[in-house]
Design a protein around this nucleic acid. Sequence first.
RNA 1: GCCGGCUUAGCUCAGUGGUAGAGCAACCGCCUUGUAAGCGGUAGGUCGCGAGUUCAAAUCCCGCAGCCGGCACCA
Length: 641
Amino acid sequence: MPTITLPDGSQRPYPAPLSGAELAASIGSGLAKAALAIKIDGKVKDLATIIDHDAKVEIVTRTHPDALDLLRHDAAHVMAEAVQELYPGTQITFGPATETGFYYDFHREEPFTPEDFAKIEKRMAEIVDRNETITREIWTRDQAVDYFKSAGETFKAEWIKEIPADEEISIYRQGKWLDLCTGPHLPSTSKLGKAFKVMKLSGAYWRGDANNPQLQRIYGTAWADEKQLKNYLTQLEEAEKRDHRRLGREMDLFHQQEEAAGAVFWHPKGWTFYRTLENYIRRRLNDAGYVEVKTPQIMDRSLWERSGHWEKFHENMFIVQDDENHVLAVKPMNCPGHVQIFRQGLTSYRDLPLRMAEFGSCHRNEPSGALHGIMRVRAFTQDDAHIFCTEDQIVTETKAFCDLLRSVYRDFGFEDVRVKFSDRPEKRAGSDETWDKAEAALKGATTAAGLEFTLNPGEGAFYGPKLEFVLRDTIGRDWQCGTLQVDFVLPERLDASYVGEDGAKHRPVMLHRAIFGSLERFIGILIEHYAGKFPLWLAPLQVVVCSIVTDASPYAEKVAAALRAAGLKTELDLRNEKIAYKVREHSLAKVPVIIAVGKRDEEGGTVAIRRLGSNDQTVLPLAEAVETLGAEATSPLDRRE
RNA sequence: GCCGGCUUAGCUCAGUGGUAGAGCAACCGCCUUGUAAGCGGUAGGUCGCGAGUUCAAAUCCCGCAGCCGGCACCA
């Protein structure tokens, strides 16, 4: 005798247990038709699920927040069925829903190619039209293993053996096709609809391990209706337009070339931007009580051996050998160098915390497949610093860092910042006691800083646990930039010590921390975040002054000089071209302010200002324009006061 | 590093075995112009690199590199 509570709060008693489909039908025939699944006490289940107890139940239709996951998971199954029909001998493995769609990993000797996509999509549409009923069955373990083995599905068979004994083996059948799956699923393939598209192809390792065989992953996207699909595809195009590699070229910021794979050639405008960023953070660090240092690019192997980097990372380090057979390494990080500075002379507890910063130019020999524009490079610069402090100071230093970081991110328009806490990895240095201490300290400090975090188990650095700061850009993508890592290991290994109040030697704790992470990557993120349309204070070129007629050239020069005197990065365009031509060109180059001057302006002492993204102009007296733009170009550093 | 794709002029791209093409950009003229492309002309390429097949290779085969999309990695 279940009593069912619906989302509107109404309660319905039923004389006997009933399925989700029956429930939907009892509420209305329209709902029965639209129903895809039910959500019982917060869990999405098949429509065929029998409700035999009092429960809160929602009918999941296409517009329900949980519908997309369901549709996408079904799209994965429908695609797998299509692929197995089209390419006999292909083995199925896993196929989950993703944030924007789904994928399915297949094993097949012959590679799929993008030419297969249309064929697969067509067959998927046919399977939708066939309206195959989807049913759930519970099999015994042996039955399932036997079945998949005899069907030649070795991956599935292997997987079943590893499912914990107390879990049900559920099989979903649609038409002649079936898959091992926990579900839930739609009642039939027609409910999927046709708002899906097979998108791309890639390799993926069986169970995510590079030692395992490689599978072929086919990705697709799926939506509740055609409009959503179209909308998503448009969004992809928009994201492509703000690709930093494309904008970097169009805005003449930087280039890369194959003789220096994984490195950046900064052009004048790009380097101006870089320096703006560097100077900004330099001042923020200075204000926060950091000192800046510079340590050697190349240091002897022995130092890297002592620090522990050699053992763990030497394959990813650039190694050099000199004439006298010394083996050296180009620095992949700055911490060992900073410890060397710390070790010079005696340090008192009164000197702590010592916050040592460096714009450290590092090289890491990243795997070729990892490189990506200026976001993932082999030569990069960190806004790195190490805070040498006592254990007691971890909490206040962590809190101060978190505050600084959030304030910096806000200056770049990033309001939404999340924190991940990564604890001890399998391969690590230091004793379990040390790790207990480090993890407890960092957790305590994070909580004290008023931050919420999600746990990222086993993802810590080899020397200590870490916080990772993830920011969200204007188009909703997440980027991990900042980090703070507690390290009890390196001071020990490199023998850093300070003299305590008690006159005895103690080990300092090191906090490794960065806000941007890598300047190169952060610039890439900013380019995409702003789509190249930088706020005035960041723009590497702020104003272009264009003459409308040649006779106005002297006045244009005067205007440009006045802007430059006010500190604005200004260029002159005196070319013999129509003003519309110049406006178009500088707009495409994403110059934030275009000033056009002709005879009228010269006579009136005015300028016509056109802002990027606007089709209007504002005519202002020159002095007023200089003042307005000058104020707007002020760095947030000077606005703060 | 692994899987798949790609690489032709500065950029975007056409060209599937028979003398390398287009648009835009560049350069040179004309035009003196009021807010997103005025007009005309000129120049520009060892078709990523190397080796092979062929009378003949941008095109077919092999190797390598780089890039793109993922996977794995990310101190």
